[in-house]
Design a protein around this nucleic acid. Structure first.
Lengths: 353, 353
DNA sequence: ATAGATTACACAATCGTTAATGTAAACCGA
DNA sequence: TCGGTTTACATTAACGATTGTGTAATCTAT
């Protein structure tokens, strides 16, 4: 039985197909199809007729049919670790906005920080015949095996923010190293001489680079690198608190802390306040991500903005480039966004100068 | 030309079609299709064979083809005003998680608080042959005309959070009135006697109900309703600051404020602190949404949690019910979630008792 | 043992769009 | 004026899965 029953009590409303247009105009479907896609072999008069009727009948092309025929849909798959906090929602926001402008819809998938889900997500997206896949890797993704299938099918693949370095991939990333460098440098310029660092998991490019930027800055000030001053964790608030405790218990505690994430630095701030240690006078603080709360705390927290919206837009732009460059030999494209340091009270006038 | 060229230098990899399975097994595609969907007319032995081969060849059904044939895909369209802050990302998170569990993928659309975009989004989703549409209305949506087409096509439609009341729609909402009632009651129980209210746009159900809950609470304490104590705005931080100024300039200022949103109450808090007015001793505060920052401010802000995750899950569940009840006569289904009041420092011991 | 029911599968049409190929008619220059 | 190109369209076969209908073979009951 035909799933779309002709109900006589209701107007057939929308489902106007190309066949309807063709019959109405007395031309073939080919002509309609080509007129709508502005094919050269259709005369201008015919094109006009078709376009006019299409508008009049409010013809809406069936994306599924086109997708089936062409093997590609107008859908872009996005895989993110999760949709919470400030960063990923904002990037998704940027992606959705840019994609829609280009006529694409966005399918959202979450890996929940697990590579197994990432694999499943990829299958799902491939079955959905997506035109491209945009990915920010899960925390425990260590190789690209599951992306091979995507590459083989010739589907544009763009990574953003969290990538695996060294492999030949298209990616949009923040210049984390530069951001970390600027931030640490700023702390040093404010008079800090013993700057500690809260570092994240080092197999993730973002945390590795932030640590590197921190190291760079120390070096540029001819300061020694003290591994005791680097606390590794998953950058949660609690771990920030713990890390700060640890730092304070050192024989020679720091006078500044740069964290690779805002939650951790918030944890540190809370601990310091509870112990009556003044920020920034005694210890200056700076974080990373420019979370919403950084402008709310007292003192407000200095932090690095990750250009979430721009990252989303750039990722879609890169995808579009790949679509247009289809067929030309592969070459790696990387877009590096410049971070922006927001200097707030937590790092100003540390009084050491 | 066939868009999928047979490249001999690469394994054909994934695109295994039903036809491939059928040929391999020497049965018809019908049999394969029915075996995979567990149709009664296929013998158990045959089913096993098909299933086994499908697994072995890693057969993945082409969703587009099925969607085209059935007129329905495994996609759910979601329309939200935007993807920022805490509420919508979290609800989307919940929706995505629940939908994927049920075998659906989620397409995200933003209306950007404009009914014109909402209309476009609906067209997009209908063309994508979505199986259902989940919507939280834009700020300036005042009628349901553009949803008629969805209804006519028999596509399940579920509203969440922001709905238009009075119409026969399926919806998942928070009991905003109860949440507001409890919160205001709490302020009154803490000793407040002049509780003001920051109200949002009253054509939106959520803000209307929150205001109503506030009124209910005053009434239950036999307190007069003073319209001067109700400040209407869009509930931004700045408007919260302004509103607070306005309240302070009253001949008889309030000793408590309940805001229908957290940003506004934060604005109020900042103003009070800047003027040296103590919270909660002089003026107690409470907000709505349980934004992340409410646990960070000093004092921490009392607020109502909106059960974002649950709302997402419930919305998908309602959608699934509609799918299963397809054909049975329509009756309106409403799910009302109970809010949860998080009492924090900003409303405790206002010292008036 | 035979009519009737049930089981197990195949055939072929179909969803709406696309595109390779075919083919008239008009047009062009020499 | 004739071979060859261009213009403007039609024919037709896909894309991959679904499903109403057809039909053997097996089973059940009387």
């Amino acid at each position: 039985m035909n799933p779309r029953k002709p109900k006589k009590e209701e107007v057939p409303d929308s489902p106007v197909s190309m066949a309807d247009l063709a019959k109405e105009l007395g031309v073939s479907m080919t002509t309609v199809s080509r007129a709508l896609s502005d094919h050269y072999s259709i005369g201008p008069a015919t094109k006009q007729k078709v376009l006019k009727l299409a508008k009049k009948l409010n013809y809406q092309p069936n994306q599924m049919a086109a997708a089936l025929r062409k093997g590609k849909s107008k859908l872009i798959g996005v895989i993110v670790p999760y949709i919470e906090g400030r960063f990923f929602p904002s990037v998704v926001h940027g992606i959705e906005t840019a994609a829609r402008k280009a006529g694409f819809s966005v399918i959202i998938c979450q890996s929940n920080e697990d590579v197994a889900n990432e694999r499943k997500n990829i299958e799902t997206l491939l079955n959905a015949q997506v035109a491209g896949i945009l990915v920010s890797l899960s925390r425990n993704t260590r190789d690209f095996k599951h992306f091979e299938k995507v590459r083989k099918r010739g589907i544009p693949l763009v990574f953003f923010d969290r990538i695996l370095e060294g492999d030949n991939v298209n990616a949009v990333v923040l210049n984390d190293r530069e951001g970390a460098f600027q931030t640490t440098k700023h702390l040093l310029e404010q008079g800090c001489r013993r700057v500690a660092h809260f570092a994240g998991p080092q197999h993730l490019n973002i945390y590795k680079n932030r640590r590197q930027g921190y190291v760079d800055a120390l070096r540029s000030f001819d300061l020694p690198l003290d591994e005791d001053m680097i606390i590794y964790s998953d950058m949660t608030l609690e771990q920030g608190t713990e890390g700060m405790k640890q730092l304070l218990s050192l024989p020679n505690p720091p006078d500044g802390v740069f964290a690779a994430g805002d939650s951790a630095i918030l944890g540190a701030l809370q601990l310091l306040k509870s112990r009556g240690i003044r920020v920034p006078q005694d210890i200056a603080l700076a974080g990373f991500s420019n979370e919403g709360f950084t402008a709310i705390t007292e003192p407000m927290l200095t932090s690095v903005d990750q250009r979430c919206e721009e990252m989303g837009q750039a990722t879609v732009r890169l995808f579009m480039e790949l679509v247009e460059a289809k067929g030309t030999p592969f070459y790696q494209r990387q877009v590096v966004l410049q971070p922006q340091l927001f200097i707030r009270e937590s790092s100003l006038h540390s009084g050491k100068r």
